Computed example of a mutant assay.
Amino acid sequence: MSFIKGIELCRRFHTEVVEPLMMEDYHHLSYSSALVGPGSEVLGYDTEMSTDHDWGPRVYLFLDQQIIDEYAEQIQASLQERAPERLYGFQLDIRRIVITTVPGFIESILAISRAEPIEPLDWLTFPSQSLLEITRGAVYRDDHGQLAKMREKFEYYPHDIWLYLMASCWQRIGQEEHLMLRSGFMGDELGSALIASRLVRDIMNLGFLMERHYAPYPKWFGTAFKHLKCSGELMPHLWKAQTASAWREREHAFHKVYEHLSRMHNELNITENIAKDVSYFYDRPFKVMNGEGIARRLADQIINTDLHQLAGQRLIGSIDLITDNTDFRTMKYARNELKALFKSAIRD
């Protein structure tokens, strides 16, 4: 049995099993079919190792609610009766076919209903991995273009959100870059290395933002970063900063990183050009990128009133920057409480 990437296997499942059944028994129904939602195969990063759990032929079937109410059980029963047990050697579990509406799918991923307009602060409550679960994968059929509209709607952050998130990343860099050097200067190489790792992650996040790509969850974070245009230039220096045994080596590696980041920032043409070189941190014997100054330039470009106020009070970023706790980030229905946190920060 040869391994087949999940996107291709699910395409064959749709083409060879789902589509013929729907055309024969339910040809009068409009529907859409896609591989979306959670799973390494949606991101295209699945390998043979992925097949040991939660992997196999599957699709989401999208229908109108009225059609679901009338036909969902019949469709499931038809698939159960007529689908093969295996497809290209892989076990086929009909229970993994999800029949839902487009609004129902969005609510299951983002916990936001059709009746609820998406406000700017809502975007800060959406994990970037969840946005990937909507916009990545593959669409196999799309009657009436519902999936195309959904994916276009969430294709990327609105402009002011994008500015706010980049400003928040730079703020985090500015708040900790000198701490890495100070702890190293005091002989705390372990503490310095730990802060360096945090900075590496923030810089990688910034790379995703600068190139307008959603960042996946930790398992595929580094893999996806390698596909960014900036990775070839940044990776050697980030790896050096990550693995250096002495703080001066880390300092030098981050200086090289900043050379590339400053050029990338200036090429975006969203603020006045920033300096291409690092500068001394006050009178101390080490140099920094001055991330907080860059953050302020970006924040000043934000037009939306709420976001502009939030940026003036707290550059705390989205849920991804606030916490890396998996259980918290997957508590979708705590989104309103998180949104309230941002609103309270505006009022501070």
Rank of each mutant, 00 (worst) to 15 (best):
F90K: 12
G145E: 14
W247T: 13
G232K: 14
Q171H: 15
S130Y: 10
K339D: 01
G207N: 01
Q301R: 14
F13D: 01
D306T: 08
P57V: 05
L315D: 02
E133R: 07
M186G: 08
I195Y: 03
E176I: 12
Y88T: 02
S231A: 15
D69Q: 12
M23H: 08
R329L: 14
L209R: 02
S40K: 09
H237S: 08
H227W: 11
I75F: 05
H53G: 04
E177D: 05
P57D: 01
M264A: 09
I173K: 00
V42I: 13
R212H: 00
I7E: 07
E19A: 09
D142V: 12
S197V: 08
S183N: 01
Q242H: 15
Q65D: 07
F13Q: 03
G187C: 13
E259H: 14
E41P: 15
T330V: 10
A241I: 15
I316H: 07
G232V: 07
E272L: 06
S344I: 13
D283G: 02
R172F: 09
A299Y: 04
I99W: 09
A72I: 11
P57S: 02
A253L: 10
K240L: 15
D320G: 02
D52C: 13
V288Y: 00
V18Q: 04
T326R: 13
R335Q: 08
N269K: 08
A196W: 14
L206M: 07
G317E: 00
I134F: 00
G89F: 02
H27I: 04
T135V: 10
L61V: 04
A148E: 15
A334Y: 01
K240F: 12
Q301N: 00
H227K: 15
G104Y: 04
L165P: 05
H28Y: 14
R347H: 08
A167P: 08
Y214H: 03
I316R: 02
R96C: 03
H265W: 11
Q91H: 12
D54E: 08
L21D: 00
H265T: 04
F286Q: 04
K226L: 09
D300G: 05
D122C: 06
I203N: 05
S108L: 15
Y157D: 11
V257A: 11
Y258S: 06
G44A: 14
M150S: 01
R182Q: 05
F3W: 10
M150V: 12
V18R: 03
D188R: 13
E259I: 13
T323R: 09
Q301P: 04
I195R: 06
Y71Q: 10
L341Q: 07
G89V: 12
I195Q: 02
Q74D: 13
K287L: 06
L61G: 04
W55M: 07
H255W: 01
P236T: 06
T15G: 03
G191F: 10
F3R: 03
Y31T: 10
H237W: 15
E133D: 06
V102I: 15
Q146G: 11
L238F: 12
Q76V: 06
Y140S: 03
K219F: 00
V200L: 07
G207H: 03
L268Q: 11
A193V: 07
V200A: 12
G191K: 06
W170V: 05
F154K: 03
Y88E: 07
F62W: 02
E133V: 09
N325P: 00
R12I: 14
R314A: 05
A299E: 04
C169R: 05
S128L: 11
Q175R: 15
